[in-house]
Computed example of a mutant assay.
Amino acid sequence: MASAFRPEQARIPPALALPKAISNLFCFTYRFKIGLCQLTVTPDKERNIKHARKVIKEAAQKGAQLVVLPEIWNSPYSNDSFPVYAEDIDAGHDASPSTAMLAEVSGQLKITIVGGSIAERCGDKLYNTCCIFGTDGKLKAKHRKIHLFDIDFPGKITFMESKTFTAGETPTIVDTDVGRIGIGICYDICFQELAMIYASRGAHLLCYPGAFNMTTGPSHWELLQRSRAVDNQLYVATCSPARDSGAGYIAWGHSTLVGPLGEVIATTEHDEDIIIAEIDYSILEQRRTNLPLAKQKRGDLYRLVDIRRLDAHCRV
């Protein structure tokens, strides 16, 4: 009877299998430590960059092979600040001191860095952009925040990110020395379809640099992380700025690593901190065998269509 559900048709094109490690080539490691760096952010950009460098090195010294930074870690989180602190990432070097530091440190320490996000200037547009650097210090991928944070809770918080930023157009999945990682930024985590696309593309881990606030944070910051993890049976890591009660925008904090059953593996409070926790990809297949969601999807009733991958598939 189960075959009548056509689970293979529930995702179009069909989901890719999890990438496997090839021991003799050592494509990536199955078990490693991740460092989530919950940073204090100030109006002093140079200080923020120097401090991030120091904290990344500290995380690496504690064994982290993958280090994740927060959303907008080099400037205050405000529409007034974004244009002032924006960098031309593609030009690099002096035009983008924040990413130049990340490239230098990742290559120097031989670690993978999911570089939180910074305001990126590209022509006459600004983007909220995350850069991922490999162990060779080279830029492996760049994710521009797809879903812009436009919300209105009267009497609590109103923020319109679209007043300054342009929305990104492309889901970002990247193969690294520590597995296949899907990237989202903050509000991207609210949209389950993006996470489902990453899972369908064979992601082991989703990383969401974020800056949830004192209204949205208590209500669903952890809930969303656990939901994305358990729905897709993979790891989810988030990294927030530390809380500054005197800032115009106050971050919730609580950077977290969640496992494929939705279990909270490690988390912190709201002060500056570094989480060092272990990820073990060997349990992903085990969890998917224990709870075979992929084999039980009702392709006869619903389908997730990965538009970009379908277009590429049709062109072949």
Rank of each mutant, 00 (worst) to 15 (best):
V84H: 10
G202W: 03
D150G: 08
D188Y: 00
D94L: 07
T164F: 05
P154D: 00
E161W: 05
K145V: 06
Y85E: 00
L148K: 00
G182C: 09
N213K: 04
P154H: 01
D94M: 11
V178K: 06
T215A: 11
P154W: 09
T166R: 11
I113C: 03
E120T: 08
L148Y: 08
D188N: 04
F165R: 01
I185Y: 01
E161S: 05
C130S: 14
L223A: 14
G134E: 05
G168D: 02
A91T: 08
Y208S: 04
V114T: 07
K145F: 06
G179K: 00
G115A: 15
S200A: 15
R180S: 15
H93S: 12
F133P: 03
F133G: 07
S200N: 12
D175K: 06
S200V: 05
D88N: 15
I181V: 15
H204M: 11
E120G: 07
F165K: 08
A95Y: 11
A100Y: 08
S117G: 08
G92M: 03
I173P: 05
T158C: 09
I146Y: 00
C122W: 08
G123S: 07
A195R: 08
G134H: 00
G179T: 07
V174T: 12
G134D: 02
C122Y: 13
D175T: 12
F191R: 13
D152Q: 06
A103W: 02
K156W: 02
F191Y: 14
S98G: 07
F191Q: 12
T158Q: 11
P97Y: 06
L148S: 07
S98W: 06
E222M: 13
H220R: 14
H220I: 03
V178T: 14
L223I: 12
T166V: 11
I197W: 10
T99L: 14
